[in-house]
């Protein structure tokens, strides 16, 4: 038997029972070839060491850690089932978009009155909030000088739709118990 065949048979002996002829030829070769015999003993020793590797256990609170990381079951929010919440989110987008379209003139008018409200200050809101609102609006006006002019007739409906999508997102998050909604990374 060639040494190459002998080495292959030694490897195969870890995976299957050699036939009686193969075993006899291998034994005969190992009796005469010192190098293959050394190879067989070392390889067997290595494989046996692998087999005898004890089962390692993780930390004692492993299960608790995993359970803490599991997503909250999609059971909804305040007793409302998750599926209902999802439908509600979709409905919120549709309704908000429809209302935006229906009241777009009013929204545009409101947007045009914002500067006046900010300058009036104390008439309808408390001085504290008027001051905050004035600061925010002042900052926005300052930043707006660096931006191209915004067409409020377009911006307000777009902003409203974005707000509606935001509301729908919040509803969806509630349906998931405020756990991050992730795509499955595992393929079955």
């Amino acid at each position: 038997m060639e040494c190459h065949t002998s080495l292959t048979l030694i490897q195969e002996s870890f995976e299957r029972i050699l036939s009686s002829i193969e075993q006899r030829e291998l034994d005969d070769h190992l009796l005469t070839c010192k190098n293959c015999r050394a190879e067989a003993v070392l390889l067997t020793g290595v494989v046996n060491a692998v087999k005898e590797t004890p089962l390692e256990m993780p930390s004692h609170d492993f299960t608790l850690h995993v359970m803490d990381r599991l997503p909250v079951p999609v059971s909804g929010f305040l007793g409302i089932p998750g599926d209902v919440m999802r439908v509600a989110a979709a409905a919120a987008i549709v309704v908000a978009t429809f209302l935006t379209w229906l009241y777009q003139d009013s929204l545009i008018q409101i947007s045009k009155r914002i500067p006046e409200t900010a300058s009036i200050g104390t008439d309808s809101v408390s001085p504290y909030f008027a001051q905050i609102f004035g600061s925010i609006y002042g900052s926005w006006q300052y930043m707006a000088t660096f931006l191209p002019p915004i067409d409020m007739d377009v911006a307000i409906p777009v902003l409203s739709v974005l707000i509606a999508i935001g509301v729908a997102q919040v509803v969806l998050r509630m349906a998931h118990g405020f756990e991050p909604v992730e795509l499955d990374e595992v393929t079955s």
Binding site: C3, N35, A38, V41, L42, N48, A49, V50, T53
Partner: peptide, 29 residues
């Protein structure tokens, strides 16, 4: 081709029985 392996007798159990051999093989994995 096979490497030059030192002769370590005919019994692989002699190797495995030595705890340092077992430990180091397990770390090698």
């Amino acid at each position: 081709a096979p490497l030059q392996i030192p002769d370590h007798g005919d019994n692989p159990d002699r190797l495995v029985e030595r705890s340092e051999f077992k430990d180091r093989v397990q770390n090698m994995i």
